[in-house]
Amino acid sequence: MLQKIYLIIFCFILFPFEGFALEPAEKLLMERNSLYQYIAVTEDTSKHKRYLRNNKKGLIQGVISLDAPGKLLFEYTQTSFVSLAFLQMNPTDVLFAGLGIGAMPGYMNRYYPEANIDVVEIDTDIIQVAKEYFYFKENKNLMVHPGDARQFIKRSKKKYDIIFLDAYQSDYIPFHLTTVEFLREVKNILEDNGVVVSNILSPNRNKFFDSMIMTYKKVFPYLYIFKGKTAGNFVFVVTKSSDLKDKDGIETIAKKIQSLKKFDFDLPETVSRFEHSMAYEWSGADILTDDFAPVNLYKYQDSEAK
């Protein structure tokens, strides 16, 4: 018996917990446990890319190319900028809930330097990592506020033209940032012509996705959906105003913005994935509330909408 135990201990010494199943060319630059999560930065020396991870395996939270650190590599980060085409004019006040590596706020700041951008990020270690490893910089028009997104939004006296909701805990959205009550608070700080953009991760359409659709629909008059080319990436766009946008109108504006701003990705092409939410709505889905929001479970349950 004792021998067996020794053998097991011996095995553990020989094969210590494998931290990463890294690609041979990928090396670990840093890892840390913050108050909120596990953070690791890795670098692929052959692809010249740097990654932020919250999980020992799989899911990447953010990525930059070392050759072009300003570029938006994730599809949803590009897609999120379709929100610009829903506005009547250039955005003056922009809010990001969730910093990540700071790619989107940085991009926004570069193309709209005159816009006031607030970022709310709960994890101060993430802020530090974004600055240290992902070339994120604050300036007078781009400020990061450490804190909980919901508390920030509830307390905000300011109104915003665009609000980006991208606060993830590893692979799920904390439940208090998914509910009807929360979205109403978001709507309260949205300008009348403003737009809310949300990154909804839903590999195989799941119950969480269905519930998110109905919850957004409960609070906002119209919901537009941009489905990613890669599976499971959806960008939700909602407006406060009650005039229904159509694809042609949005595309026209997107082309105008593109010729003006010369983004390094094809904004009109992203807009072409415009869909109304009707096709996705399923009235059987539960609306998420502060009282009832089983987000962790719904992520693992397939949609019942057929």
């Binding site: 108050l35 909120y36 909980d148 919901r150 509830k154 904390p174 439940f175 208090h176 009550e181 502060d290």
Partner: peptide, 12 residues
Amino acid sequence: SRILAPNFGNSV
């Protein structure tokens, strides 16, 4: 924890 989250978050 669910009661507190809407006002105080879900933090440690």
